[in-house]
Amino acid sequence: MFYPNSPQTSPQLTQIPYGQQYAMMQRQIQQPYHPFATTEPQARLYPYHYQGPIQQEQGGFITQQSTAASPQYVQMRVTPVDQSIMSGYPNQTANGSSSSSFNYNIHPQQQQQQQQQQQQLRHHAMPVGSVPLQDDRYRKQLIVNYLAPDVTSTDLHELFSRFGELDGARIIYDKQTNMSKGYGFVYFCHAEDAKEAVERMSGYEFHGKWLKVGYSTNPLNIVPSNSSPYVHAGSRGAAG
């Protein structure tokens, strides 16, 4: 039997160049792979992502010199942007860049009308829970959420009447099932009393439920100042 490094198959040491006398086997001759043993700084910083320098080929596509990437890492192929796409944008300079302001050559009167329309939209648009300043009635009506099913309009009136005089209180019921929808409205005579009720009743436990109280901004629920107070009856038909 002959071994790869046996004296019968191995040459004389004098015939082997210096430095390879003890590297006779194939696994010894093959050098191990060192990912950080390279002179390129990109490979030292990113050993798993770097795959060699990027070269520009004919046709405008950018390719990489090395083989496919590892399945664990996804390499994105980048193509140059066609400058003709950006030619339609206004205020574009000769080098292809555009300024931040756009001039669509709008007539001054049209621009003024658009600004007025935007101001009107901001004036009428009102986020949930906010209180408008032009109508004091919005500051007097509250919406009470997360009410228990057994709470009546009379219970709601008695709960909030300790903060001040009320114009009314009612629970909203479903017309088909005649069941409470879980929320109601309270109408105060003074805005200061309503503000105190919002601050003190939010998070209050009532009939096993934690109440959420806020201003009601729905104009359909506003009680006119010259109208008669609501009837605080315990029956659902009268309260709904």
Rank of each mutant, 00 (worst) to 15 (best):
Y46R: 15
Y48V: 08
P17A: 11
T38W: 07
M24Y: 08
P4K: 13
F185Y: 02
Y104D: 03
F160I: 00
S98L: 06
S70T: 06
S227G: 05
G60L: 03
Q110I: 10
V213I: 06
A68I: 05
P11Y: 04
Q55I: 04
A148R: 15
S202E: 07
I222T: 03
R27V: 00
P47F: 01
R137L: 03
M126E: 07
A43P: 08
E199I: 15
F163W: 03
S180R: 02
T14F: 06
R44A: 04
T217P: 00
F36S: 15
E205W: 15
H49D: 06
I85Q: 11
F206E: 00
N145E: 01
S153V: 03
D155L: 13
Q21T: 07
S101A: 08
M25Q: 09
Q83R: 15
T67I: 09
P108T: 09
P35K: 15
G214Y: 02
S101D: 04
S227P: 07
N95P: 04
A169N: 01
T154N: 07
R200K: 06
R122V: 04
Q15A: 08
C189E: 04
M86A: 11
F61L: 13
Q8R: 14
A94C: 13
G214N: 07
G52L: 05
A43I: 03
I16Y: 07
Q120F: 13
S227M: 11
Q28P: 09
D155A: 07
M179H: 12
S180P: 12
A94H: 08
Q116S: 09
H190I: 06
P53R: 13
M76D: 13
L13F: 13
N226Q: 11
G88A: 08
C189G: 07
S10C: 05
G164A: 01
E199R: 15
F185R: 01
P149K: 10
Q120C: 07
Y183K: 00
H157E: 04
Q64S: 07
H124A: 06
A43H: 11
M24W: 13
S98V: 08
G182A: 12
Y146Q: 01
S99E: 06
V74S: 13
L121R: 10
Q21N: 06
R122W: 13
E165W: 15
L220M: 05
Q8P: 11
T67H: 11
S10T: 10
P11E: 06
L211C: 00
G203E: 02
A238Q: 05
L166W: 00
R77W: 00
Q26T: 03
L166V: 02
Y48R: 15
M24K: 15
Y146D: 01
I143D: 00
Y22D: 08
G208P: 00
Q28N: 07
Y18F: 08
Q117A: 10
M86E: 14
C189K: 15
P90T: 09
S10L: 04
A169M: 00
I172T: 01
H124K: 08
D167K: 01
K195D: 07
F163E: 01
E40F: 05
S130V: 08
L121S: 09
K175W: 09
A194I: 00
E192D: 08
D155N: 09
V223C: 03
A194C: 03
G96S: 07
L121Y: 11
K140S: 03
A43G: 12
S6R: 14
S161D: 12
Q28F: 03
N221Y: 15
G19K: 15
G184L: 00
E192Q: 08
S235I: 14
A125V: 10
Y146M: 01
L121W: 08
T39M: 11
F160Y: 00
Q115S: 07
N226K: 11
G164K: 01
R162H: 14
T67L: 06
S225L: 13
E57D: 07
L159C: 08
Y138D: 02
S161I: 10
Y89V: 12
T38M: 11
T14G: 10
S100A: 11
V74I: 12
R162P: 08
S84M: 08
E192S: 08
R236Y: 02
Q109A: 06
T9E: 10
I222D: 02
V81Y: 06
V81K: 15
F185A: 00
V151C: 05
M86G: 14
G59R: 12
N105T: 06
Q117T: 06
N103K: 12
V144H: 00
A233C: 09
Q176L: 13
R137Y: 03
L166D: 00
G168A: 02
A125Q: 04
T154E: 15
Y48T: 14
Y50T: 14
D174P: 01
S225C: 15
Y204L: 14
F102E: 06
A37E: 09
Q31G: 08
V231K: 07
V223P: 05
G203C: 12
N218T: 01
N178K: 03
M179S: 07
A148M: 07
Q116L: 13
S84D: 05
R122Q: 04
Q26F: 05
F185D: 00
Q56K: 12
Y48C: 13
F160H: 00
S70H: 13
S161L: 12
A239V: 10
M201S: 02
S202N: 09
L211R: 00
Q109T: 12
